[in-house]
Protein backbone atom coordinates (compact mmCIF):
# COMPACT_ATOMS: atom_id res chain seq x y z
CA UNK A 1 0.00 0.00 0.00
CA UNK A 2 2.72 2.48 0.91
CA UNK A 3 4.40 1.58 -2.35
CA UNK A 4 1.29 2.73 -4.15
CA UNK A 5 1.34 5.99 -2.21
CA UNK A 6 4.82 6.66 -3.59
CA UNK A 7 3.32 7.04 -7.06
CA UNK A 8 2.01 10.45 -5.98
CA UNK A 9 5.59 11.40 -5.08
CA UNK A 10 6.67 12.95 -8.36
CA UNK A 11 3.58 15.13 -8.48
CA UNK A 12 3.99 16.23 -4.86
CA UNK A 13 7.55 17.31 -5.60
CA UNK A 14 6.30 19.06 -8.72
CA UNK A 15 3.51 20.87 -6.85
CA UNK A 16 5.94 22.00 -4.16
CA UNK A 17 8.41 23.25 -6.77
CA UNK A 18 6.07 24.86 -9.29
CA UNK A 19 2.93 25.81 -7.35
CA UNK A 20 4.05 26.58 -3.78
CA UNK A 21 7.59 27.84 -4.35
CA UNK A 22 6.61 30.36 -7.09
CA UNK A 23 4.03 31.85 -4.71
CA UNK A 24 6.81 32.33 -2.17
CA UNK A 25 8.83 34.06 -4.88
CA UNK A 26 6.00 36.57 -5.40
CA UNK A 27 5.82 37.10 -1.63
CA UNK A 28 9.59 37.60 -1.53
CA UNK A 29 9.57 40.18 -4.34
CA UNK A 30 6.38 41.82 -3.13
CA UNK A 31 7.69 42.46 0.37
CA UNK A 32 11.18 43.67 -0.52
CA UNK A 33 12.40 46.91 -2.04
CA UNK A 34 14.79 46.99 -4.99
CA UNK A 35 17.82 47.05 -2.67
CA UNK A 36 16.57 43.94 -0.87
CA UNK A 37 15.21 45.43 2.38
CA UNK A 38 11.83 44.49 3.81
CA UNK A 39 9.01 46.88 2.91
CA UNK A 40 5.25 47.20 2.74
CA UNK A 41 5.41 49.94 0.13
CA UNK A 42 4.79 47.62 -2.85
CA UNK A 43 1.55 46.49 -1.27
CA UNK A 44 0.60 49.98 -0.12
CA UNK A 45 1.22 51.20 -3.68
CA UNK A 46 -2.27 50.02 -4.57
CA UNK A 47 -3.48 53.20 -2.81
CA UNK A 48 -1.66 55.29 -5.44
CA UNK A 49 -4.37 57.12 -7.44
CA UNK A 50 -3.25 55.62 -10.78
CA UNK A 51 -3.26 52.07 -9.43
CA UNK A 52 -6.48 52.60 -7.55
CA UNK A 53 -8.22 53.95 -10.63
CA UNK A 54 -6.89 51.01 -12.68
CA UNK A 55 -8.25 48.57 -10.10
CA UNK A 56 -11.53 50.50 -10.04
CA UNK A 57 -11.86 50.39 -13.83
CA UNK A 58 -11.06 46.67 -13.82
CA UNK A 59 -13.75 46.02 -11.24
CA UNK A 60 -16.32 48.13 -13.13
CA UNK A 61 -15.60 46.49 -16.51
CA UNK A 62 -15.39 42.97 -15.05
CA UNK A 63 -18.63 43.50 -13.14
CA UNK A 64 -20.26 44.92 -16.28
CA UNK A 65 -19.28 41.97 -18.42
CA UNK A 66 -20.38 39.57 -15.67
CA UNK A 67 -23.83 41.18 -15.45
CA UNK A 68 -24.31 41.27 -19.24
CA UNK A 69 -23.19 37.63 -19.55
CA UNK A 70 -25.61 36.65 -16.80
CA UNK A 71 -28.53 38.49 -18.43
CA UNK A 72 -27.82 36.95 -21.84
CA UNK A 73 -27.08 33.43 -20.56
CA UNK A 74 -29.84 32.98 -18.00
CA UNK A 75 -32.76 32.80 -20.45
CA UNK A 76 -30.64 30.76 -22.85
CA UNK A 77 -29.68 28.20 -20.20
CA UNK A 78 -33.31 28.02 -19.08
CA UNK A 79 -34.60 27.38 -22.59
CA UNK A 80 -31.89 24.79 -23.28
CA UNK A 81 -32.50 22.97 -19.99
CA UNK A 82 -36.21 22.63 -20.80
CA UNK A 83 -35.53 20.85 -24.06
CA UNK A 84 -34.67 17.45 -22.70
CA UNK A 85 -34.30 15.79 -26.08
CA UNK A 86 -31.15 13.88 -27.01
CA UNK A 87 -30.08 16.78 -29.18
CA UNK A 88 -29.46 19.01 -26.17
CA UNK A 89 -25.97 17.83 -25.35
CA UNK A 90 -24.89 18.54 -28.91
CA UNK A 91 -26.51 21.97 -28.70
CA UNK A 92 -24.75 22.78 -25.41
CA UNK A 93 -21.45 21.59 -26.92
CA UNK A 94 -22.00 24.08 -29.72
CA UNK A 95 -22.45 26.86 -27.19
CA UNK A 96 -19.28 26.09 -25.26
CA UNK A 97 -17.18 25.34 -28.33
CA UNK A 98 -16.09 28.98 -28.82
CA UNK A 99 -14.46 28.75 -25.39
CA UNK A 100 -11.84 26.43 -26.85
CA UNK A 101 -10.95 28.56 -29.83
CA UNK A 102 -7.68 30.36 -29.30
CA UNK A 103 -8.34 33.33 -27.05
CA UNK A 104 -6.17 35.64 -29.16
CA UNK A 105 -8.06 34.72 -32.31
CA UNK A 106 -11.38 35.64 -30.75
CA UNK A 107 -9.97 39.03 -29.77
CA UNK A 108 -8.61 39.43 -33.30
CA UNK A 109 -12.05 38.65 -34.75
CA UNK A 110 -13.66 41.31 -32.57
CA UNK A 111 -11.05 43.85 -33.56
CA UNK A 112 -11.96 43.27 -37.21
CA UNK A 113 -15.63 43.77 -36.52
CA UNK A 114 -15.33 46.84 -34.30
CA UNK A 115 -12.62 48.78 -36.17
CA UNK A 116 -13.55 52.15 -37.68
CA UNK A 117 -13.30 50.63 -41.15
CA UNK A 118 -14.45 47.25 -39.86
CA UNK A 119 -17.35 44.95 -40.62
CA UNK A 120 -19.85 46.60 -38.27
CA UNK A 121 -19.35 50.06 -39.78
CA UNK A 122 -19.38 48.50 -43.24
CA UNK A 123 -22.86 47.12 -42.53
CA UNK A 124 -24.02 50.39 -40.98
CA UNK A 125 -22.67 52.31 -43.97
CA UNK A 126 -24.51 49.99 -46.34
CA UNK A 127 -27.77 51.04 -44.70
CA UNK A 128 -26.69 54.68 -44.77
CA UNK A 129 -26.18 54.90 -41.00
CA UNK A 130 -23.52 56.88 -39.13
CA UNK A 131 -20.37 54.84 -38.32
CA UNK A 132 -19.73 53.99 -34.66
CA UNK A 133 -16.37 54.58 -32.99
CA UNK A 134 -16.25 51.62 -30.64
CA UNK A 135 -12.71 50.29 -31.01
CA UNK A 136 -10.17 51.73 -28.55
CA UNK A 137 -12.78 52.59 -25.97
CA UNK A 138 -14.08 51.16 -22.73
CA UNK A 139 -17.07 49.80 -24.66
CA UNK A 140 -14.79 47.70 -26.86
CA UNK A 141 -13.09 46.14 -23.81
CA UNK A 142 -16.49 45.41 -22.28
CA UNK A 143 -17.72 43.78 -25.51
CA UNK A 144 -14.47 41.80 -25.79
CA UNK A 145 -14.64 40.42 -22.26
CA UNK A 146 -18.33 39.59 -22.52
CA UNK A 147 -17.79 37.78 -25.81
CA UNK A 148 -14.75 35.91 -24.58
CA UNK A 149 -16.21 34.68 -21.32
CA UNK A 150 -19.90 34.19 -22.23
CA UNK A 151 -19.59 30.37 -22.58
CA UNK A 152 -18.19 30.22 -19.03
CA UNK A 153 -21.51 31.63 -17.83
CA UNK A 154 -23.76 29.48 -20.03
CA UNK A 155 -22.31 26.13 -18.94
CA UNK A 156 -22.69 26.27 -15.13
CA UNK A 157 -26.14 27.88 -15.45
CA UNK A 158 -27.24 25.13 -17.81
CA UNK A 159 -25.90 22.41 -15.52
CA UNK A 160 -27.62 23.90 -12.46
CA UNK A 161 -30.94 24.21 -14.29
CA UNK A 162 -30.79 20.64 -15.63
CA UNK A 163 -30.65 19.49 -12.01
CA UNK A 164 -33.92 21.26 -11.13
CA UNK A 165 -36.62 18.65 -10.57
CA UNK A 166 -39.41 19.38 -13.08
CA UNK A 167 -41.90 17.91 -10.60
CA UNK A 168 -41.28 20.88 -8.31
CA UNK A 169 -42.29 23.24 -11.10
CA UNK A 170 -45.38 21.14 -11.85
CA UNK A 171 -46.26 20.96 -8.16
CA UNK A 172 -46.01 24.74 -7.83
CA UNK A 173 -48.25 25.15 -10.88
CA UNK A 174 -50.78 22.65 -9.51
CA UNK A 175 -50.87 24.56 -6.26
CA UNK A 176 -51.86 27.66 -8.16
CA UNK A 177 -48.57 29.53 -8.56
CA UNK A 178 -48.38 31.82 -11.59
CA UNK A 179 -45.40 32.01 -13.90
CA UNK A 180 -43.75 34.80 -11.96
CA UNK A 181 -44.14 33.04 -8.62
CA UNK A 182 -42.78 29.79 -10.09
CA UNK A 183 -39.78 31.65 -11.41
CA UNK A 184 -39.00 33.64 -8.27
CA UNK A 185 -39.80 30.93 -5.73
CA UNK A 186 -38.66 27.74 -7.49
CA UNK A 187 -36.41 28.26 -10.49
CA UNK A 188 -34.35 31.23 -9.37
CA UNK A 189 -33.41 29.87 -5.91
CA UNK A 190 -32.64 26.42 -7.28
CA UNK A 191 -30.44 27.81 -10.05
CA UNK A 192 -28.43 29.93 -7.59
CA UNK A 193 -25.41 27.54 -7.41
CA UNK A 194 -25.06 27.87 -11.19
CA UNK A 195 -25.36 31.64 -10.98
CA UNK A 196 -22.57 31.77 -8.38
CA UNK A 197 -20.27 29.47 -10.39
CA UNK A 198 -20.97 31.48 -13.52
CA UNK A 199 -20.19 34.78 -11.81
CA UNK A 200 -16.90 33.39 -10.47
CA UNK A 201 -15.95 31.94 -13.86
CA UNK A 202 -16.53 35.22 -15.69
CA UNK A 203 -15.49 37.75 -13.06
CA UNK A 204 -12.13 36.20 -12.07
CA UNK A 205 -10.57 36.03 -15.55
CA UNK A 206 -12.07 39.42 -16.51
CA UNK A 207 -10.61 41.30 -13.59
CA UNK A 208 -7.01 40.30 -14.26
CA UNK A 209 -7.23 40.61 -18.05
CA UNK A 210 -4.65 42.72 -19.85
CA UNK A 211 -4.47 41.51 -23.46
CA UNK A 212 -8.07 42.43 -24.32
CA UNK A 213 -7.58 45.93 -22.91
CA UNK A 214 -4.33 46.19 -24.84
CA UNK A 215 -5.75 45.21 -28.24
CA UNK A 216 -9.35 46.45 -28.08
CA UNK A 217 -8.65 49.39 -25.76
CA UNK A 218 -5.62 50.49 -27.77
CA UNK A 219 -3.36 50.86 -24.70
CA UNK A 220 -5.32 53.98 -23.78
CA UNK A 221 -7.21 52.40 -20.94
CA UNK A 222 -5.15 50.93 -18.12
CA UNK A 223 -6.64 48.06 -16.17
CA UNK A 224 -4.90 46.56 -13.13
CA UNK A 225 -3.65 43.71 -15.35
CA UNK A 226 -2.04 46.24 -17.70
CA UNK A 227 -0.39 48.05 -14.79
CA UNK A 228 1.12 44.81 -13.48
CA UNK A 229 2.21 43.72 -16.96
CA UNK A 230 3.91 47.07 -17.56
CA UNK A 231 5.76 46.94 -14.23
CA UNK A 232 7.33 43.70 -15.46
CA UNK A 233 7.89 44.38 -19.15
CA UNK A 234 8.18 48.16 -19.44
CA UNK A 235 9.30 49.89 -16.27
CA UNK A 236 11.06 46.82 -14.89
CA UNK A 237 9.97 47.37 -11.31
CA UNK A 238 9.42 43.72 -10.44
CA UNK A 239 8.99 44.38 -6.74
CA UNK A 240 6.12 46.76 -7.35
CA UNK A 241 4.63 44.38 -9.93
CA UNK A 242 4.79 41.52 -7.43
CA UNK A 243 3.24 43.64 -4.69
CA UNK A 244 0.32 44.58 -6.94
CA UNK A 245 -0.04 40.92 -8.03
CA UNK A 246 -0.37 39.96 -4.38
CA UNK A 247 -3.12 42.53 -3.92
CA UNK A 248 -4.91 41.20 -7.01
CA UNK A 249 -4.55 37.63 -5.73
CA UNK A 250 -5.94 38.59 -2.32
CA UNK A 251 -8.82 40.36 -4.02
CA UNK A 252 -9.61 37.30 -6.16
CA UNK A 253 -9.48 34.76 -3.35
CA UNK A 254 -11.40 37.19 -1.14
CA UNK A 255 -14.24 37.64 -3.61
CA UNK A 256 -14.29 33.91 -4.27
CA UNK A 257 -14.63 33.21 -0.55
CA UNK A 258 -17.52 35.69 -0.34
CA UNK A 259 -19.24 34.11 -3.35
CA UNK A 260 -18.82 30.58 -2.03
CA UNK A 261 -20.18 31.67 1.33
CA UNK A 262 -23.26 33.14 -0.34
CA UNK A 263 -23.60 29.87 -2.17
CA UNK A 264 -23.33 27.83 1.03
CA UNK A 265 -25.97 30.01 2.70
CA UNK A 266 -28.29 29.47 -0.22
CA UNK A 267 -27.90 25.73 -0.13
CA UNK A 268 -28.38 25.74 3.63
CA UNK A 269 -31.72 27.46 3.14
CA UNK A 270 -32.80 24.97 0.54
CA UNK A 271 -32.27 22.08 2.90
CA UNK A 272 -34.57 23.61 5.51
Amino acid sequence: MTKRKMLAGPYLVWAAGFIILPLFMILLYGFTSEDGGFTFSNIAAIADPIHLSALGQSIVIAAGSTVISLLVSYPLAYILSKRTSGKTSTVIMMFILPMWINFMLRVLALQMILANTGILNGILGFFGLEPLHILYSRKAILIGMTYDYLPFMILPLYNAMCKIDRDLVDAAADLGAGRFIIFSKVILPLSMPGVISGIIMVFIPSISEFAIADILGGSKILLIGNVIEQEFNLTNNWNLGSGLSLVLMLFIFGSMAVMNKTDADQEGQLLW
Binding site: I19, P22, L23, S245, I252
Partner: peptide, 27 residues
Amino acid sequence: AIMSVTNIPMLNADIVTGIAIMLLFVR
Protein backbone atom coordinates in the same frame (compact mmCIF):
# COMPACT_ATOMS: atom_id res chain seq x y z
CA ALA B 1 -4.74 19.00 1.23
CA ILE B 2 -3.23 17.89 -2.10
CA MET B 3 -6.43 18.80 -3.94
CA SER B 4 -6.41 22.34 -2.48
CA VAL B 5 -2.86 22.86 -3.73
CA THR B 6 -3.85 21.36 -7.10
CA ASN B 7 -6.71 23.84 -7.39
CA ILE B 8 -4.45 26.89 -6.95
CA PRO B 9 -3.31 27.20 -10.59
CA MET B 10 -6.92 26.86 -11.78
CA LEU B 11 -8.43 29.36 -9.37
CA ASN B 12 -5.70 31.98 -9.34
CA ALA B 13 -5.52 34.66 -12.01
CA ASP B 14 -3.36 33.47 -14.91
CA ILE B 15 -1.30 36.64 -14.71
CA VAL B 16 -0.27 35.85 -11.12
CA THR B 17 0.54 32.19 -11.92
CA GLY B 18 2.60 33.31 -14.91
CA ILE B 19 4.52 35.94 -12.98
CA ALA B 20 5.16 33.56 -10.05
CA ILE B 21 6.70 30.90 -12.29
CA MET B 22 8.66 33.53 -14.20
CA LEU B 23 10.17 34.89 -10.95
CA LEU B 24 11.20 31.37 -9.94
CA PHE B 25 12.96 30.70 -13.24
CA VAL B 26 14.62 34.09 -13.50
CA ARG B 27 16.10 33.56 -10.02
